[in-house]
Amino acid sequence: MQNSHSGVNQLGGVFVNGRPLPDSTRQKIVELAHSGARPCDISRILQVSNGCVSKILGRYYETGSIRPRAIGGSKPRVATPEVVSKIAQYKRECPSIFAWEIRDRLLSEGVCTNDNIPSVSSINRVLRNLASEKQQMGADGMYDKLRMLNGQTGSWGTRPGWYPGTSVPGQPTQDGCQQQEGGGENTNSISSNGEDSDEAQMRLQLKRKLQRNRTSFTQEQIEALEKEFERTHYPDVFARERLAAKIDLPEARIQVWFSNRRAKWRREEKLRNQRRQASNTPSHIPISSSFSTSVYQPIPQPTTPVSSFTSGSMLGRTDTALTNTYSALPPMPSFTMANNLPMQPPVPSQTSSYSCMLPTSPSVNGRSYDTYTPPHMQTHMNSQPMGTSGTTSTGLISPGVSVPVQVPGSEPDMSQYWPRLQ
Rank of each mutant, 00 (worst) to 15 (best):
Q2A: 10
N3A: 13
N3Q: 12
S4Y: 12
H5D: 07
H5N: 11
H5I: 08
S6Q: 14
S6R: 14
S6Y: 15
Q10R: 13
G13Q: 03
G13W: 03
V14Q: 10
V14C: 07
V14A: 11
G18N: 00
G18E: 03
G18F: 00
L21Q: 02
L21P: 04
P22Q: 04
P22A: 06
P22F: 00
S24A: 13
T25S: 06
R26Y: 01
Q27Y: 12
K28W: 06
I29R: 01
V30E: 01
L32T: 03
L32S: 04
L32A: 05
A33W: 07
A33G: 04
S35Q: 13
G36T: 02
A37N: 11
P39C: 13
D41N: 07
R44P: 01
I45C: 09
I45D: 09
Q47E: 04
V48W: 00
S49N: 01
C52E: 01
V53I: 09
S54I: 03
S54F: 04
K55Q: 02
K55N: 04
I56L: 08
R59L: 07
R59E: 03
Y60C: 00
E62I: 06
G64I: 01
S65Q: 10
S65A: 05
I66T: 07
R67M: 09
P68C: 05
P68S: 05
R69S: 06
R69F: 07
R69L: 12
A70R: 14
A70L: 07
A70Q: 13
I71R: 14
G73D: 01
K75V: 05
K75G: 02
P76N: 02
R77K: 11
R77P: 02
R77N: 00
T80W: 02
P81G: 11
V83N: 08
I87H: 13
A88K: 04
A88F: 08
Q89Y: 09
Q89K: 10
Y90I: 15
Y90T: 12
K91E: 06
K91T: 02
R92D: 11
E93I: 13
C94Q: 12
C94R: 15
C94H: 12
I97M: 15
I97C: 15
F98I: 07
W100D: 05
E101C: 09
E101F: 06
R105C: 12
L106W: 03
L107S: 13
S108D: 14
S108Q: 11
G110P: 08
V111A: 09
C112N: 07
C112V: 13
T113I: 12
N114K: 13
N114T: 13
N114R: 13
D115P: 13
D115R: 13
D115I: 14
D115K: 15
N116H: 12
N116S: 08
N116C: 11
N116R: 15
I117E: 07
P118C: 05
I123F: 01
I123W: 02
N124V: 01
R125S: 05
L127C: 11
R128F: 05
N129V: 09
N129H: 14
A131V: 10
S132Y: 11
S132M: 11
Q135N: 14
Q136K: 11
Q136D: 14
M137V: 10
G138R: 12
G141I: 13
M142S: 12
D144W: 09
K145N: 10
K145I: 13
R147M: 12
R147T: 13
L149Q: 10
N150K: 13
